[in-house]
Simulated scan of single mutants.
Amino acid sequence: MNFTETAWRVFNQSIADYHIMDDVDTMLQNPFPTESLEHLLYAKNWIDTVQWHLEDIIRDENIDPTEALKLKRAIDSSNQKRTDLVEFIDSWFLTKYKNISPNSDAKINSETPAWAVDRLSILALKVYHMNLEAQRESASDEHRKNCTAKLNTLLEQKKDLSEAINQLLFDIENGSIKMKVYKQMKMYNDESLNPILYQNVKNA
Rank of each mutant, 00 (worst) to 15 (best):
I58F: 00
H53K: 09
I63V: 06
S77L: 08
F93R: 12
K98Q: 15
K81I: 01
I75V: 11
L69P: 01
N99R: 09
E87D: 05
L94T: 11
D64F: 02
S101I: 15
N103P: 06
P102K: 14
D76L: 12
E87H: 02
D64L: 02
I89P: 08
E67H: 03
E55W: 04
L85H: 15
P65H: 09
S78I: 00
L54D: 07
I57N: 00
D76K: 08
F88A: 15
D76F: 08
R82P: 01
I58P: 00
S101W: 01
N62Q: 14
I100G: 05
W52V: 07
I89D: 06
N79W: 03
H53D: 15
K98N: 12
P102A: 07
Q51N: 08
K72A: 11
F88K: 15
W52P: 07
S78T: 00
E55L: 11
E67P: 03
N103R: 12
K72P: 04
A74I: 06
F93Y: 11
Q51K: 11
K96A: 01
R82D: 04
A74S: 10
R59V: 06
E61V: 14
I63E: 06
I63H: 07
N79Q: 11
P65E: 12
Y97N: 06
F93V: 08
L85Y: 09
L85Q: 09
I57K: 00
I75S: 07
L85C: 13
A74E: 13
Y97E: 13
K98E: 14
F88W: 08
N62F: 06
D90Y: 03
K98T: 10
S77V: 12
T95E: 15
A74V: 04
L71Q: 06
I63Y: 03
V86N: 12
E87R: 03
R73P: 02
I58H: 00
L85I: 11
S101L: 10
D60G: 02
S104H: 13
T83N: 01
W52A: 11
P102N: 08
I63A: 09
E87G: 04
Q80N: 06
I89K: 12
N79L: 07
I58L: 07
L71K: 01
S78N: 05
E67V: 04
D76I: 09
Q51Y: 00
P102Y: 08
D90I: 06
A68S: 15
K98H: 12
I57D: 00
H53F: 05
R82A: 05
L71F: 02
L94E: 13
D90V: 05
D84F: 03
A74P: 03
T95I: 11
N62I: 02
R82F: 00
V86Y: 05
W52T: 10
K81T: 09
K96I: 02
D90F: 02
L69C: 10
R59F: 06
D56K: 13
I89E: 05
N62M: 08
N79P: 03
E55I: 05
P102S: 10
T83C: 02
N103F: 01
K70Q: 08
S101E: 14
S104A: 14
K96W: 01
T66H: 13
D64W: 04
L54Q: 10
K81V: 03
T83I: 01
F93M: 10
D76H: 09
A74Y: 03
E87L: 04
W52D: 12
T95R: 15
F88E: 15
